[in-house]
Design a protein around this nucleic acid. Structure first.
Lengths: 218, 218
DNA sequence: TAGATTGTTAATCGATTAACAATC
DNA sequence: TAGATTGTTAATCGATTAACAATC
């Protein structure tokens, strides 16, 4: 019942945990105290066994016949994801996407706190977005070091992305959350996670194409 | 060498195709005419065999020893993803995320064209965002029907998301691209694709937690 | 008690990787 | 010709699902 360590836990499982979290927090708000895997699974198109297997990695313990305590399960998942303690992060790129990320209220409940924004556009530098000042890119490296920032968020164009990542890595960042579509290189020991909308869009449009082309195979 | 149909092609493959596309378009811009799977794979942390398997589903044909024609491969992937012909889409939610999506220039090269924005905030209705007028939510259903819109993009809060989806479905939409974290219900025959940042963030923060906790297992 | 549910081990399924003949 | 690469079939690996004893 110990939480699993390191590479042992699959990406698929990791990606389902926030989904459960959302359902659990909804139940919690509504005053529900215990929940079974069956109940959680009903919200999705997969079964209770998968839910149970997923929850197992967090070290959460349930009671036969009763299920899991909602509040405890929320805590266990958050701890496992590292969302229990909020991490400070730097955002690079004050464009439309950057602004949207800055304006997203809920990141702190996902363990993320954007403390500063960087851009190389002189017209943007010095302005404030959601009450955060836009700083010049050359301030990035010294501030990463001084503030011991672990997470860098890349919201710049594909052309600029690799240079930004290189700068972040050189400054000592440990993890990069990349929103640029370009494939990026990162040295061993630094985490790179890509948040790519186009991947999701590809699934959508391909399915839609098939749907529109013909539902002849029913 | 026929493109694969319907459910036969896996989600994993579908999600890698846009990655290849990005690399290919870069090569194309640089005047490269032929490319091998080995060259493509070098940009990623998986092998050439997987690339070849993925490309197979698009129906693209290569030449032994030479590889694939870059321009042809781009076309084949775009056709397979349904990005060759641009689809009109409606966006619901003119908040920060909605604005960012509207401002995203590249969607048309991904087969998506956002033609209208809807919101229920009276202060927003009538204003223009990136030269698109914000319309009242009650205009949604009649316009979906009249303009034969297939794709609806949901960029509202979790609380409002299900109601918006229901409205879109009732109006005859065929596919929903959802950005709300809530799990949504959708009837058979309508496509639901979730673009959830929190899933990607979960992978990042969990890995970072392990990294910071201790690289003792090397 | 009976039945639903957890926790865990075994079976299945699908995706990735390997192998190899064909080829330019 | 030799070697890299495609196309395709077989082997492996990992994730999901099934099975079932334990339990509240």
């Amino acid at each position: 019942m110990e939480p699993k360590i390191l590479s042992a836990v699959s990406r698929s499982t990791l990606k389902r945990l926030p989904l459960y979290l959302h359902v659990l927090e909804d139940l919690h708000r509504r005053g529900v105290v215990y929940v079974s895997c069956t109940t959680i699974a009903r919200k999705f198109d997969f079964g209770p066994i998968l839910v149970r297997k997923d929850l197992e990695v967090t070290g959460a313990a349930g009671k036969a016949k009763i299920g899991f305590r909602v509040a405890g399960l929320i805590d266990d998942i958050k701890k496992f994801l590292g969302w229990h303690n909020v991490q400070d992060a730097f955002l690079v790129g004050a464009g439309n996407l950057g602004k949207a990320l800055l304006g997203y209220q809920d990141f702190d409940s996902y363990g993320l706190n954007i403390v500063a924004v960087f851009d190389n556009d002189p017209r943007k530098i010095g302005t404030r977005i959601f009450n955060k000042e836009v700083l010049a890119l050359d301030k990035l490296a010294p501030l990463v070091k001084r503030m011991h920032i672990n997470i860098g968020i890349v919201a710049v164009s594909s052309e600029g992305a690799q240079a930004v990542v290189d700068a972040l890595v050189a400054a000592g960042i440990r993890a990069v959350w990349n929103f640029a579509p370009a494939p990026l290189e990162i040295p061993e020991g630094v985490i790179l996670e890509n948040a790519r909308l186009t991947q999701s869009l590809a699934v959508l449009t391909n399915k839609l194409k098939s749907l529109l082309a013909g539902p002849e195979k029913e």
